[in-house]
């Protein structure tokens, strides 16, 4: 194990941050609201099946957002651990949808993030764009090619068993009839988001 660095108390000059701007950016996502009403009770952290793996707990992320610490929030690993189980969301005493906050943070981070999770979500989106539906084999192969082609070998045994059980198919997927519509949908979304 590496020697842990001596921990020093970080000093934050408040004028280095613009909380209102970050809050506004998040506010643009539907379902993301009432962040300012968070009372920091920590029920989200305590309800999360994976918060123990995170460097910053969900509660802390909210407080960082309110302090305007945009770069620090986007660099955290918190949102990549969210499995969208909504346990936090149903228990939040202020009705904050933490799951939606995590979607929003991932979406913002994805614009620049270069990690495994980012690659997965992008590959998923590409597959749907191509066929209109998701195809596990296609998704997994493309994901592996994008990240670590060697991992295909590791996935081999499970993949083979999936094939044997008829849970996966190696035939080239057929796009849905409305594949053109899906393409147009992607274009329109890009146009609206770019123009916004």
């Amino acid at each position: 194990m590496e020697q842990a660095e001596a921990k020093t108390l970080e000093v934050i000059r408040q004028d280095a941050f613009d909380p209102a701007k970050f809050l506004e950016e998040l506010d643009a996502f539907p379902g993301v609201d009432k962040i300012k009403n968070c009372m920091q009770c920590g029920v989200c952290t305590a309800s999360c099946p994976l918060s123990h793996e995170m460097k910053e707990t969900p509660r802390k992320i909210i407080e960082m957002i309110r302090a305007g610490m945009r770069d620090e929030v986007l660099a955290s690993d918190t949102m990549w651990y969210c499995a969208s189980c909504y346990a936090c969301t149903v228990r939040c005493p202020q009705g904050i949808s933490m799951a939606e906050v995590m979607y929003a943070l991932r979406t913002i981070a994805l614009r620049t993030a270069r990690n495994l999770s980012a690659a997965f979500y992008k590959t998923f989106s590409d597959t749907v764009r191509r066929y209109g539906r998701m195809h596990e084999s296609d998704l997994m192969i493309r994901f592996a090619l994008r990240t670590n082609p060697l991992s295909l070998l590791k996935m081999g045994p499970l993949g083979l068993r999936m094939l044997a059980k008829g849970k996966m198919s190696l035939s080239v997927p057929t796009p849905i009839r409305g594949a053109k519509e899906i393409g147009k949908l992607y274009e329109k979304v890009a146009e609206l988001e770019g123009g916004a």
């Binding site: 108390l9 000059r13 920091q40 509660r59 802390k60």
Partner: peptide, 13 residues
């Protein structure tokens, strides 16, 4: 002030 929720020392002008 120490922001006790973040564990950081904040200096607010």
């Amino acid at each position: 002030v120490e922001d006790t929720l973040l564990g950081v020392f904040r200096e607010i002008p």
